[in-house]
Design a protein around this nucleic acid. Structure first.
Length: 434
RNA sequence: CGGGGAGUAGUUCAGAUGGCUAGAACGCUGCAUUUGGGAUGCAGAGGUCGCAGGUUCAAGUCCUGUCUCCCCGACCA
């Protein structure tokens, strides 16, 4: 397709975007259907997807927004996806975690008589905890935290719902280290607040709830999730809109009602998707790895830990599914693959429309797709723009030129405005970035 | 890991009780026309019917095995 964007002009001119008329009836999840049809992702295996140029734009935007918040509370690192088996023996999780991918001497790195064994990392406590020992020796070294964006591998028995549950997915995970429980809890709260701001930036703040959940193996208390309301979500939660808090169905017991001072019966029960999860790890991992520090008084004490995850690729699926309408995707401005989608409706001889399109593209091309295909009908171009779902569709044609210049259609509301190029930038701002 | 469904052209699909020299639509290639809501005409290219065995004069179709995908459930650090 002859789409063009300055950012990719040299490398991809002519063939970086492809939409499809049909999607196999096998895919039922809305996010999978739309993202495949609009050409954002391609399925390679059950629960394993490629991100094409448009999809990778969105994924990167979500990652960048997340990074900008995480830098306020942590240090960015990159840990390995491939991990040593021995560390998982130390925490005794090798046989208890059913979704582990384990590789046994299946490549040229392993020696014939002594095949190496690796784990494809489903999470990174087994890496970060021993690594932290190199940084943490004294009470002066606190608090400290590390985060990364990493592809995680989990051998799900049944991947499903498109990007909502995969066997390979992109996650932001962070691990924090503290001299005592109080320090951990204080930091935990800071991260919680930062997450709240993040979800506002991603456009899902109003529908994302801080949620009490089961502590799992980690803790006697609760862990906490951020759950985004979604009809197709896997979880059921009880939401309290007044207090802006929710409770996962999995903890809805009479004991917990007393403990938390709530009545689940009186709350609204709705489906939702878990987009983030934070755990007070306490001493769960510092003990097996013997992660300790020397306090002011000279005594050696164990380190308290917390961990904080956000499903980056899952968020892409949630946002895609949450805002979609009958015409296709509708991206919030911050995560959209481009802010503007310029559609030129004219034949080759209609120079005026092309000149005006070029002029506009020179101004906003760093954040715009330009559909200037010649042999494609007007209807197909307009439908493609709606399917791809950029916030502003800018139509340039004889009609728009005789009505002040361009026609801007807002994707989320369908509102249409005729205006000049100058007015477009005045009213809707220019590119999000350069 | 239990239960159900499905694998046929690039894509979406049709091919009852075996007769196929395997089809349609869309897409793709060429030429011409066409540009405000998935255009039109003409001419083309494109397939070991998931894979491996078996039954039969004859297998996309029947049998056995196997792999993969989707849906429901269990699991989800």
């Amino acid at each position: 397709m002859e789409y063009e964007s300055i950012k990719f002009k040299d490398e991809y001119e002519g063939n970086s975007i492809e939409t499809f008329k049909d999607v196999s009836s096998e895919h039922e999840a809305l996010n999978a259907r739309l993202l495949i049809q609009a050409g954002f992702i391609n399925q390679e295996l059950a629960g394993v997807y490629s991100y094409t140029r448009l999809g990778y734009e969105v994924l990167n935007n979500i990652e960048e927004i997340t990074r900008s918040h995480m830098r306020k509370v942590g240090n960015e690192v990159l840990l390995p996806a491939l991990q040593p088996v021995d560390n998982w023996k130390i925490t005794d999780r090798l046989d208890t975690v059913s979704s582990l991918f384990e590789a046994r001497g299946a490549n040229s790195l392993s020696r014939e008589n002594n095949p190496s064994r690796y784990i494809l990392g489903p999470t990174h406590e087994e890496i970060i905890t021993p690594l932290a020992k190199k940084y943490i020796k004294s009470y002066r070294d606190f608090p400290v935290s590390f985060f990364q964006f990493q592809t995680k591998f989990r051998n799900e028995a049944r991947p499903k719902s498109g990007l909502l549950r995969g066997r390979e997915f992109l996650m932001k995970d962070m691990y924090s280290f503290h001299p005592d429980k109080e320090d951990m809890e204080e930091f935990y709260d800071r991260v919680k607040n930062e997450y709240t701001e993040l979800f506002k930036d991603l456009g899902i703040g109003d529908d994302t709830f801080f949620t009490y959940a089961s502590g799992g193996d980690f803790t006697d208390g609760f862990s906490h999730e951020f759950q985004t309301l979604l009809p197709n979500g896997e979880d059921m939660i009880y939401i309290d809109r007044e207090k802006n808090v929710a409770y996962n169905e999995e903890i809805a017991t009479p004991e917990n009602e007393k403990r938390l001072g709530v009545s689940f019966q009186n709350l609204e029960k709705v489906p939702a998707c878990e987009v983030a999860n934070i755990f007070p790890l306490n001493l769960k991992y510092s003990k097996p790895f013997n992660l300790t520090y020397t306090d002011k008084d000279g005594t050696v004490k164990p380190v308290y830990m917390g961990c904080y995850g956000i499903g980056i690729s899952r968020l892409m699926g949630v946002i895609a599914e949450k805002f979609a309408d009958e015409k296709g995707l509708v991206w919030p401005e911050n995560v959209a693959p481009a802010k503007f989608h310029i559609v030129t409706l004219a034949n080759k001889e209609d120079e005026e429309s092309y000149l005006l399109s070029q002029k506009l593209f020179d101004l906003i091309g760093s954040d715009a797709l330009w559909d200037r295909r010649n042999r494609v009908s007007a209807g197909e171009k307009l439908r493609d723009a709606d399917l791809i779902g950029c916030p502003y569709k800018v139509i340039i044609s004889n009609r728009s030129i005789s009505n002040k210049g361009v026609e801007v259609q807002k994707r989320s509301t369908g509102e249409k405005f005729y205006m000049s190029i100058g007015e477009l930038i005045d009213n809707f701002g220019g590119p999000r970035r350069f």
